[in-house]
Design a protein around this nucleic acid. Structure first.
Length: 827
RNA sequence: GCCGAAGUGGCGGAACUGGCAGACGCACUGGACUCAAAAUCCAGCGGUGUAACAACCGUGCGGGUUCGACUCCCGCCUUCGGCACCA
């Protein structure tokens, strides 16, 4: 051990040692309780960024802490390795996506090792490895067999110049990011997972997730978007066609003054055919349907009369039918009844197109509302009016009565509608998991039999942006035989959304090297649920919802006993520099590599955990990093100077009553144990945990420097030093390992049991009481700590200092707070 | 527009259940050590004010509840994040 803190040498030494000893390998079964600590696995983009460092430092503290508390901790890492950037890199640099990806994985893995993270690398997974995606294909087929997988038409972003499908993020302000051509919408036949079948369960089970932040649960709830309402049927005037509309406000049905259809609603073309409107309508539909949903709905509302009318089944009124840009075909029935008087959007739309406004809800029974006087829709509750037999009924009750009436007369029903849509998993891309389906002329779509899995993705592709998936240009991939009839068949060339890969990886970690099954049920049941999941809040909806969906499907299939994947969720904040998210374009990126090279991994981890509580955004500060580095140096020098006093020192003898500085040293030690334990396990407030350790270190310096060497108590000193090292171990794993060895201990500090505090050591002789006059602190006085609360008031009131404060004023009231303060109210 | 989160010294943050605002760290100032610098150590550090005390003000703003409010209630302002007309 050297006098100087040589972090480079120490970190290399211990990383090698951990590797050689397989320190972080975990057995699947033992007598100890289990704990599954999981951080969201990264996309292998090339290099780690500070967000990764933050995410994985947080997880590592939790994993190491739980290990020391005696749990078997599953703490795995892997790679979300399929995706678009690999294809872009291939086009740009002429490197095969597989080569690029695996190179990145190599590099990032070495970076993770440099951070000293306690992963069981024997369980590493990469979603682009056939040993992983084989089981993704198998799971797809399980969903297929269960009827949860189907094909239908869906719109994609289409670049007419590149002749290729674009992801949303490749569309920049309506144009292709590569060639700037205006992006169009195109219909393709695509695969879907029927997540809507699970909508109600996904909603209901949110209540079980006590360990999730409320904000994430609220976001999921809104995303699922359950709404109770009714479907009412309007007949088209002079035709056999009818238009069902979904509405949450059937109580306003007497106020309908027009009907609006989504532009792609089949009736738009059908009903306008042969009318004078036909040409204009068709021009409108053409124009609107080329736009993305976002562009359509964020523009001003626009509509056009389609030349037909329908009949309100409640009052027989004939109202015009329009087509509009803002009505979504896939939500509800693709049709909206226009009630301008009681809906903001309808009000705005009616004003623009001069459509009649009919009031049917009054604020109170007699308070009439006049359409001419309205400046905004009246959307509050009230009483039904101008509504035939329903007049005077409070509208909430009216909703039920109208539905009841509709059901009796066959003009509608009560229905529940979800905003959630089925999960589109087809991607017209190369670098993804091939969808295990073949198309046979005779048998149609046929699932690939299990024994033929995996459907291998060819990696030796010449990757050119031809517009079509490179898989289509590979006859050896496309041409195959039908598993059913043996005739000629063609493979599906679409690959799966990478969200599919990342929706079950937490299960694969339990059986990462199993070649015979996706996971061993016993092992999955041993480890699931994930006890703590940690990652960015940007995944609050899609990733977490898809994973919850998969878990429920697997439960239904009998593949696991868990019904929810993640017991507790921690969503970490972003890492900012100069108040903005770090990004290349802003030029405010701080590279983890540089920080590690300059200060070491322990410093990087300490700073990122100390600078802010994990859920909040973190402002990067170079000065702050230096401060954390200085602290570790301070710890090093302190313990180095005392190492010989600690090695072989006796334990604290039972029943010893320490006084004075020794007692104070012990109090600091045990307070730190209490506080750090609470901060890590309860609130994840690593920042305050670290400040408590700093206070302990400060106290140790005082004990060393202010107490003569002969008077120091070896047992007290050793207890304080050992505690410092152990409490710091989850945060700064290398330096603590070195110091643990230097102070004469055997074995890894990371295998030490986590200490518990001695309540007796926390008891103080005196407490400071704040004396307040009318709520303002006037004096701080020490009283014996063992004084009974009842005696405190009298004791203090009789003190001369306190009497002087009161003077000749009259005491109105005295409020004592034991151990804290005494408030004297005077007048 | 809707939903969510957050506003505390020069800065990051602390105060966990309504009970002493500013722990811990950064920056800064002064001092020690040094030929000097770095490193390290010691002291100071919310504002007004004072010779020094005292006193007053102070947790985005305005009200309220309370013996007592960063914390609870009502109304606003600002910033950040999410969602985009969900019938």
């Amino acid at each position: 051990m050297q006098e100087h803190y040589d972090f480079k040498e120490i970190e290399n030494k211990w990383q090698e040692e951990w590797d050689n000893q397989n320190t972080y390998q975990v057995q699947n079964f033992s007598d100890r309780p289990k704990y599954y600590c999981l951080e969201m696995f990264p996309y292998p983009s090339g290099k780690l960024h500070m967000g990764h460092v933050r995410n994985y430092s947080i997880g590592d503290v939790v994993a190491r802490f739980k290990t020391m508390q005696g749990f078997d901790v599953l703490h795995p890492m892997g790679w979300d390795a399929f995706g678009l950037p690999a294809e872009n890199a291939a086009i740009k640099n002429g490197i095969a996506p597989a080569t690029w990806t695996w190179d990145n994985i190599d590099h990032m893995k070495s970076q993770l090792k440099q951070l000293g993270l306690s992963y069981d690398w024997d369980r590493e997974v990469a979603t682009c490895h056939p040993g992983y995606y084989k089981w993704g294909q198998w799971l797809f087929l399980q969903l297929y067999k269960k009827g949860l997988c189907y094909k239908k038409h869906a719109r994609v972003n289409w670049c007419p110049d590149c002749a290729t499908v674009l992801a949303n993020e490749q569309v920049v302000e309506g144009s292709c990011e590569r060639c700037s051509a205006v992006v169009e919408q195109k219909q393709l036949d695509q695969w879907f997972f029927r997540i809507t079948e699970y909508a109600q369960r996904l909603l209901d089970d949110l209540k079980q997730l006590k360990g999730w932040p409320d904000k994430v649960k609220i976001m999921q709830e809104n995303w699922i978007g359950r709404s109770q309402g009714s479907e009412l049927i309007f007949q088209v005037d002079g035709s056999n066609e009818s238009i069902p509309v979904f509405t949450t406000r059937p109580d306003t049905v007497y106020g309908v003054s027009y009907m609006v259809l989504a532009a792609e609603h089949p009736l738009v073309a059908k009903l306008s055919a042969g009318t004078p409107q036909e040409a204009a309508v068709s021009e409108f539909v053409n124009r609107v349907s080329k736009l993305t949903e976002l562009a359509r709905t964020s523009n001003e509302k626009e509509g056009i009369f389609i030349g037909a009318y329908c009949i309100n089944p409640f009052n027989g009124e004939k109202v015009p039918i329009l087509a509009a840009n803002y009505v979504l075909y896939h939500y509800g029935t693709g049709a909206v009844m226009g009630v301008p008087a009681h809906d903001e959007r309808d009000f705005e739309f009616a004003r623009k197109y001069d459509l009649p406004i009919k009031v049917v809800i009054y604020p109170t029974k007699d308070q009439e509302l006049r359409a001419e006087e309205m400046t905004a829709a009246y959307t509050e509750d009230g009483f039904m009016a101008n509504s035939g037999p329903f007049n005077g009924i409070p509208n909430r009750q009216g909703i039920k009565k109208v539905i009841q009436y509709a059901e009796e007369t066959g003009i509608g029903t009560g229905v529940v509608n979800f905003r959630l849509r089925d999960w589109l998993i087809s991607r017209q891309r190369y670098w993804g998991t091939p969808i295990p389906i073949v198309y046979c002329e005779k048998c149609g779509a046929v699932p690939v039999p299990d024994e033929q899995l995996p459907v291998l993705l060819p990696t030796d592709v010449a990757f050119k942006p031809t517009g079509e998936s490179p898989l289509k240009g590979r006859p050896d991939f496309v041409h195959t035989t039908c598993p059913q009839c043996g005739g000629a068949a063609q493979r599906e060339t679409d690959t799966m959304d990478t969200f599919v890969d990342s929706s079950w990886y937490y299960l694969r970690y339990t059986s990462a090297r199993d070649n015979d099954q996706a996971w061993d049920k016993n092992k999955a049941d041993r480890w699931m649920n994930v006890d703590q999941y940690i990652g960015g809040v940007e995944h609050a909806i899609l990733h977490l919802l898809y994973s919850r969906f998969f878990t429920k499907v697997f439960y239904d299939l009998g593949l696991i006993n868990a019904q929810e994947p993640f017991e507790n969720l921690l969503t970490q904040g972003m890492v900012l520099k100069d108040g903005a998210k770090m990004s290349k374009s802003k030029g405010n990126v701080v590279s983890p590599e540089e920080i590690i090279a300059r200060y070491g991994a322990d410093t990087a981890r300490m700073f990122i955990l100390f600078a802010a509580p994990p859920e909040r955004d973190l402002e990067w500060s170079d000065r702050g990093v230096e401060g954390s580095h200085r602290f570790l140096n301070r710890v090093w020098r302190l313990i180095y100077s005392l190492k010989d006093d600690v090695a072989g020192a006796p334990a604290i003898p039972a029943g010893t009553n320490y006084v004075g500085v020794h007692k104070e040293m012990r109090r600091l030690t045990h307070y730190a144990i209490k506080k750090v334990t609470e901060d890590i396990s309860g609130r994840f407030n690593f920042n305050t945990a670290i400040s408590t350790i700093m206070e302990l270190v400060n106290g140790l310096y005082t004990y060393r420097d202010k107490v003569a060497e002969v008077e120091r108590d070896a047992a007290v000193l050793a207890e304080a030093i050992d505690t410092t090292i152990i409490l710091l171990a989850p945060f700064a794993p290398h330096i603590t390992e070195e110091l643990w060895a230097a102070t004469g201990h055997q074995g890894s500090v990371h295998k030490q049991p986590w200490p518990t505090f001695d309540p007796a050591a926390l008891v103080e002789d005196e407490v400071e009481i704040a004396v307040q006059i009318n709520g303002k602190v006037r004096e701080r006085l020490n009283i014996p700590a063992n004084m009974k609360p009842a005696d405190m008031q009298q004791y203090l009131l009789e003190m001369e200092l306190v009497k002087a404060l009161i003077g000749n004023k009259q005491i109105v009231k005295v409020i004592p707070v034991p151990g804290k303060l005494l408030n004297i109210v005077v007048k």
